[in-house]
């Protein structure tokens, strides 16, 4: 399933069938971690999503129950935000792929002859991580602000109307998402392309395929594992992202994504059941989309 896309080898070696006490001990911290920090919160989240408000209680006071209407209420109110979240995430993923592929191809294939250049470029790809993701997004807000040079320039050349903005628009949110997730796309792509055997490209050219056909028929299929892991690493977090679309960063109320609704319900409205229901819907939709995607991309066949 989704997880095999990240491993380079789809063929699973059969582990020796031997009960090993040591293996169990070594696995224990990991299992404990998963139970404590994944399974328990998940169960708690599911329970919360079915809670009902306490009659005559305070705001934010809920009691256990089975109020499945929380889901219909949440979807009834927030379905445009769910759609927008997936729409933005898909657009940002596609843009990140289009931008990252040439970068990764250049570093992984063309720069092979110069290992120093290769490492330097890789460092540049990772360099944004040296500064907090929040700070970088805030910096973009500054750059794209109404007084900033970009908006001024766009107004001067009349691309942007005189009362236009960049921040708070769909454009700036998608821009922010794309920008923030490019390294997550570039690195797995690089990892695959770096191992691309150029003899296949030569064989393609020898068999009458033009450079574009070779790219379409040979390079792309052979780099599919990188494309799949890169798009997953971008799409999944982008769909749940609430920083870029937040009013405090690049978004506005008209660009809110489902993440913003979850945040508002948990922290502002204290409507925990709705927030929990939205989270579970988000998770379920992502799982379904990713499952179909991985199955359709056919990466199981690629070794």
């Amino acid at each position: 399933m989704a997880f095999t896309a990240f491993s380079s080898q789809a063929v699973v070696e059969q582990a020796p069938r031997k009960r090993s006490f040591i293996a169990l001990v070594l696995l224990l911290p990991g299992i404990l971690y998963l139970v404590l920090f994944f399974l328990a919160p998940l169960i708690s989240l599911v329970i919360t999503s079915f809670q009902q408000p306490v009659l005559d209680g305070d705001v934010g006071e809920y009691t256990a129950g089975f109020q499945w209407q929380n889901y219909t209420d949440a979807m009834g109110e927030y379905w445009p935000l769910v759609l927008r979240a997936f729409g933005f995430a898909i657009i940002a993923t596609v843009l990140a792929l289009i931008i990252s592929y040439p970068i990764a191809y250049f570093i992984g294939v063309k720069a092979r002859r110069w290992p120093l250049l290769q490492s330097l470029l890789l460092t540049l790809v990772i360099a944004p991580f040296f500064i907090s993701f929040l700070l970088r997004t805030l910096a973009w807000k500054q750059i794209m602000s109404d007084e900033g040079p970009i908006v001024q320039f766009l107004k001067t050349v009349a691309i942007l109307p005189s009362d236009g903005h960049l921040t708070g628009t769909t454009f700036s949110v998608i821009f922010g998402l794309t920008y923030n997730f490019i390294p997550f796309m570039t690195l797995p792509l690089y990892a695959t392309l770096e191992r691309l055997d150029l003899r296949y490209i030569e064989a393609g050219a020898d068999l009458y395929a033009s450079p574009f056909t070779v790219f379409r028929k040979v390079t792309i299929p052979l780099s599919m594992p990188g494309i799949v892991s890169g798009t997953l690493l971008t799409f999944i977090p982008a769909a749940g992202d609430y920083i870029n679309a937040s009013r405090d960063f690049l978004g506005s109320s008209s660009t809110a994504m489902v993440g913003n609704a979850i945040e508002a319900n948990f922290l502002v409205l204290q409507n925990y059941p709705i927030a929990a229901a939205l989270s579970i819907v988000l998770m379920a939709v992502i799982l379904i989309i990713v499952g179909i995607y991985v199955r359709r991309s056919g990466t199981e066949d690629l070794i």
Binding site: D197, R199, Y200, E202, A203, G204, A205, D206, L207, Y208, A209, S210, P211, V218, P221, L222, M224, D301, L302, I303
Partner: peptide, 20 residues
């Protein structure tokens, strides 16, 4: 001319069969 324009085919030492 480029390789794809030449009336030539090669049997490569590594065979280079497309794995996909």
């Amino acid at each position: 001319t480029k390789p794809f324009q030449r009336p030539v085919n090669t049997v490569f030492q590594s065979y280079a069969l497309f794995p996909h």
